[in-house]
């Protein structure tokens, strides 16, 4: 059980017929139950990469396997794959279109052959999962705030009951409350439904707080892929490709330089707080 990319290249030609690699020799395996963050500068291949996970884009070279089966073999059920691997693109609320919130979320499951009654049951469950109350369901999605619209759009994908849920910058443009709601929703889906979550983010702090594994893309290649703590130990290389390490790791470095000895591996607020309190308690 996994999504596996083997030697994947994605090559496109620009105006001058020059070959450009959007992806170059990418080898990855996404296993069920993982919580993964993908980082990289604009144009590093993040969005191209995630569209290979459910066959929306086809590699120029190399292969993509789902549960061991090549997804570009003739008899492979690509449509079924797209039900199992759900992708939520940037600003998904721009794709809301139905008259009511409930109708909008029913669209996916009905498209996959469910009856209206079945779809409604699934849609209501998905909307409750993202924190929308029963009385909202008959409202127009266009009356909602930015954060609420985003959650309805996410419910639209959850209603397909995917095994793998992939999101491209799901918190972009949201205020802190909206951002926390989305990230905690992902955490809950991962913990309670054992859903595999992969999200693209520009916030190293968010990645550090939520994921286990981190993939860093640079010029279409996988620069780092591993445990987040290991990846964030490559501070210099990350800065060289336009990224950074979390605020708390920089803080730990500064503290150590000044003789306030804490672990250099600190990534989150909680870890920083614990480490600092431990030092201060010893002193007293």
């Amino acid at each position: 059980m996994s999504i596996r990319l083997e030697h994947v290249d994605y090559i496109y030609e620009d105006n001058s017929n020059q070959k450009n690699y959007a992806l170059k020799d990418v080898n990855l395996e996404i296993n069920p139950g993982e919580f993964i963050g993908i980082a990289g500068h604009t144009g590093s291949g993040k969005s191209t990469l995630i569209q290979h996970f459910n066959g929306l884009m086809q590699p120029t070279n190399g292969n993509v396997y789902f549960d061991g089966k090549n997804i570009y073999e003739n008899d492979f059920d690509l449509r079924g794959l797209r039900g199992k691997v759900g992708i939520c693109f940037q600003y998904p609320e721009h794709q809301l279109f139905e008259v009511t919130i409930l109708d909008d979320v029913c669209f996916g499951p009905m498209n996959f052959g469910k009856t209206r009654e079945e779809a409604e049951i699934i849609a209501k469950k998905a909307l409750l999962d993202v924190g929308m109350s029963e009385e909202m369901l008959q409202k127009s999605p266009f009356e909602l705030s930015g954060g609420q619209k985003r959650r309805v759009a996410i419910a639209g994908i959850l209603a397909m009951e995917p095994e793998y849920f992939i999101l491209d910058e799901p918190t972009a443009g949201l205020d802190p409350v909206g951002r926390g709601q989305i990230l905690n929703l992902l955490k809950r889906l991962h913990e309670t439904k054992k859903m595999t979550i992969i999200f693209v983010s520009h916030s190293m702090e968010d990645v550090a707080s939520y994921v286990q594994r981190m993939i860093v893309m640079n010029h279409g290649e996988v620069l780092f892929d591993g445990d987040k703590r290991e990846v964030f130990s490559h501070q210099k290389e990350l800065e060289e490709v336009g990224l950074s390490v979390p605020f708390y790791r920089y803080l730990a470095e500064d503290l150590n330089q000044r003789g306030f000895t804490v672990s250099k591996d600190i990534l989150t607020m909680e870890e920083a707080k614990e480490a600092i309190l431990k030092v201060l308690r010893k002193k007293r």
Binding site: P176, V177, E205, Y248, L251, M269, A272, K273, I276, L277
Partner: peptide, 18 residues
Amino acid sequence: LGLEVPYAAELAWQLRQE
């Protein structure tokens, strides 16, 4: 107000609570 403060201010606040 549903807002945050910069990381350093937040951590300092957390430490003050302790």
